[in-house]
């Protein structure tokens, strides 16, 4: 299944974000090896060079590391994953709050709808 991309951000960033989500959600577990750049590129039907850049981006974010003869593995440092997950959840929550507050709705009512839909 080829991946969809939006128009504003560089594609390698979008790929990195997508793979980060896979790691944070546990699809790729800590210490697990990732597919090769080429396989990943074919899976996403993107250019292998772009995939390579996305991998470098993930390395910079500290989410993956390269081990010789094995390839790229998800970081074994769980604190990094936890930090990034918390950061992500906070970002999403802040976005939600920003938008919901513009409606001037009461906190209790918002919680109620949140619980109903969880």
């Amino acid at each position: 299944m080829s991946w969809k991309f939006n128009n504003s951000k560089p594609i390698y960033i979008q790929i990195a974000d997508k793979i980060e989500m896979m790691i944070l959600s546990g699809e790729y577990k800590s210490g697990e090896s990732l597919p090769s750049v080429r396989d990943f590129a074919v899976q996403a039907s993107v250019n292998p060079n772009t995939m390579q850049r996305a991998m470098q981006e993930l390395e910079t974010r500290g989410l993956i590391f390269v081990q010789r003869a094995v390839g790229r593995l998800v970081t074994e440092d769980n604190s990094v994953i936890e930090n990034r997950l918390n950061q992500k959840v906070k970002n999403i929550t802040l976005n939600y709050l920003n938008e919901i507050k513009t409606l001037n709705i009461k906190k209790e009512d918002a919680f109620k709808i949140l619980k109903e839909n969880w």
């Binding site: 128009n7 504003s8 951000k9 560089p10 594609i11 390698y12 772009t50 850049r53």
Partner: peptide
């Protein structure tokens, strides 16, 4: 480069 364009102009090549 495609990514440079997106970084500099915030636009896809298509746009």
């Amino acid at each position: 480069s495609v990514d440079n364009l997106r970084e500099e102009k915030g636009m896809s090549v298509d746009e």
